[in-house]
């Protein structure tokens, strides 16, 4: 009778602990998924800004078609990849593909900026200045969103791997989250849109 009560008590405690851990993991998972959707929103914003930039720039630099085409192409690839990844942010290979597409876009933008340095008229254009501010801000937002995402991923992964949460995590298939990182260190550099 007495020992039955004790066993019951222990079971209840274990169940409550498991539920608490499960809820915590769910909360952290949703936080990092939301973190990704934040990056996604900002990347979309960037993808929308780039055609505007290319259009404004092309009015001034007719002989640089190649560079402009490269930027547009890279933008389209990255945009597609981003849509795919947004549907399933926990897929490791998709995340990596997006990261490398982003890297390609970044380096294309870098080339465009170098070319634009040769066109003082373009730099003086009012619309261009607005676009520049918008783009600079978006770059920052992407960076900060990635920062927040990385923090959220780290919190989630730590919580997932700790004992006893790891038992609950494996039982309920909480997968390991993937950081949003590019392999190539050169690609990690942000686009420097300098109009000094």
């Amino acid at each position: 009778m007495n020992s039955g009560l004790v066993t019951l008590g222990i079971v209840v405690v274990i169940v409550i602990a498991a539920v608490l851990i499960y809820n915590r993991l769910v909360r952290l998972r949703n936080r990092f998924l939301n973190g990704f959707s934040q990056i996604d929103v900002q990347l979309q914003r960037r993808y929308e800004l780039i055609p505007n930039l290319v259009e404004t720039a092309s009015a001034y630099m007719r002989h640089e078609n190649e560079t402009l085409m490269a930027v547009t192409a890279a933008r389209n690839t990255a945009s597609e990849q981003c849509e795919k990844t947004a549907r399933n942010p926990q897929d490791k290979s998709l995340m990596e593909a997006l990261a490398s597409a982003e890297g390609a876009l970044t380096s294309a933008m870098g080339r465009l900026n170098v070319v634009m340095e040769n066109y003082p008229d373009l730099k003086a254009d009012a619309q261009m200045r607005d676009l520049h501010e918008e783009l600079a801000s978006t770059e920052n937002r992407v960076a900060f969103a990635r920062q927040a995402y990385s923090d959220a991923v780290m919190d989630y992964n730590i919580a997932r791997e700790q004992f006893p949460a790891v038992l609950v995590a494996t039982a309920c298939s909480f997968k390991e989250a993937e950081l949003f990182e590019t392999e190539d260190p050169a690609m990690k550099q942000s686009v420097s849109v300098s109009f000094a």
Partner: peptide, 12 residues
């Protein structure tokens, strides 16, 4: 610019 910066930091 200020509004942009505020938006950035609120993401961060």
């Amino acid at each position: 610019r200020l509004l942009n910066v505020v938006a950035e930091v609120s993401i961060a």
